[in-house]
């Protein structure tokens, strides 16, 4: 009698691509032959999100697929070995994730290096549109993600979110293709970045707190915004007051019931939009606004 294993690779691959990833993981446990086929062949899965938490004795992994109704369908597993992790990463390497998250615990021993090696050994780099990780160890994972697919990078603090601390090795992260090709960057506001703001101008959306920001850098950001059609939103953590900003941005506009200072600049390449700079205590927000939304009485500088 014919069985599933009598088929050639084409129908077997077709069956796997018609199956959800949970069924594929179960199929791996059926027999050696099927496990070998699943591990050795290239097929796409419906996996959409993977979150790996590296603990002291192993990995906790949460996987989600996106089903037809756009709802996520999750499976969480604890105490995975690096072999289990290898299986899921190999299965994923022909698909595109919407998000890949790595979390570490302070007492993890070697787990991060195991993950780095697994990612490095994939036939092709892991494809994900978003990547989230803690700042100090981003370099262990980010270089192994597909730079053409990655669009959004999120960098978070390891534990204490209340106190400011420096984001180490950001200068090395900024040299990566993954950083240069991404369009959105979110660095948690408690992480201080020592870097030239001009290195961030290729992003469309940025959240960053700089250790020091010069007026020249802020003026350069304004210039980049008023000539770009792509830049949408920059939140820059700075401690400069209205008077210190006047030499570069001019006289601010104040709205009634609005506590901050506002400046508006026309976009030279996109007449429908203006740059709105909003100064609040501790940060400056640069945003792309529709020209008709400029409040009555405000001056749009050119």
């Amino acid at each position: 009698m014919a069985s599933l294993l009598d088929m050639t690779d084409v129908p077997l691959k077709n069956i796997l691509e018609n199956s959800d990833y949970k069924s594929v993981l179960t199929l791996r446990k059926v027999c050696h032959s099927l496990r070998n086929f699943i591990d050795d062949s290239c097929f796409k899965t419906d996996l959409d999100y993977i979150r790996i938490t590296i603990g002291p004795t192993g990995f906790s992994v949460r996987c989600e697929s996106r089903n037809a109704s756009r709802r996520r369908d999750a499976v969480s597993s604890k105490e995975w070995t690096s072999n289990d992790l290898k299986t899921i990463l190999k299965m994923t390497q022909n698909s595109k994730l919407s998000c890949f998250t790595v979390k570490t615990s302070p007492d993890n021993v070697g787990g991060l290096d195991d993950l780095k090696e697994l990612l490095n050994n994939l036939t092709r780099p892991l494809q994900t549109e978003r990547f989230d990780m803690e700042g100090s160890v981003t370099l262990k994972v980010l270089p192994y993600l597909d730079s053409k697919t990655l669009k959004e990078i999120g960098i978070n603090p390891t534990n204490n979110r209340d106190a400011y601390h420096n984001l180490d090795e950001i200068e090395n992260v900024m040299e990566l293709e993954q950083f240069k090709n991404a369009v959105e960057l979110t660095i948690h506001s408690c992480l201080l970045v020592r870097a030239d703001l001009r290195k961030f101008f290729h992003f469309q959306i940025v959240h960053v707190r700089l250790h020091e920001t010069s007026l020249e850098e802020l003026e350069a950001l304004k210039e980049a915004f008023v000539t770009s059609c792509d830049m949408k939103y920059f939140l820059v953590g700075v401690n400069l007051n209205e008077n210190q900003l006047q030499p570069v941005f001019g006289t601010p506009f104040h709205e009634i019931y609005h506590p901050g200072s506002l400046w508006f600049f026309g976009n030279r390449n996109c007449k429908k939009h203006v740059l709105k700079i909003e100064g609040r205590t501790g940060y400056l927000l640069f945003g792309k606004w529709r020209a008709e939304e400029v409040p009555h009485g405000a001056v749009v500088q050119h």
Partner: peptide
């Protein structure tokens, strides 16, 4: 090929490895 493979894939949903072995006429190791 697509519809027949889809039918086989649907048969796997929510089954244990032992059940799948019977459904897919597969031998144990």
């Amino acid at each position: 090929l697509n519809v027949s493979c889809k039918k086989v894939a649907n048969m796997a949903q929510g089954k244990t490895p032992a059940q799948l072995r019977r459904v897919y006429l597969l031998p144990s190791d």
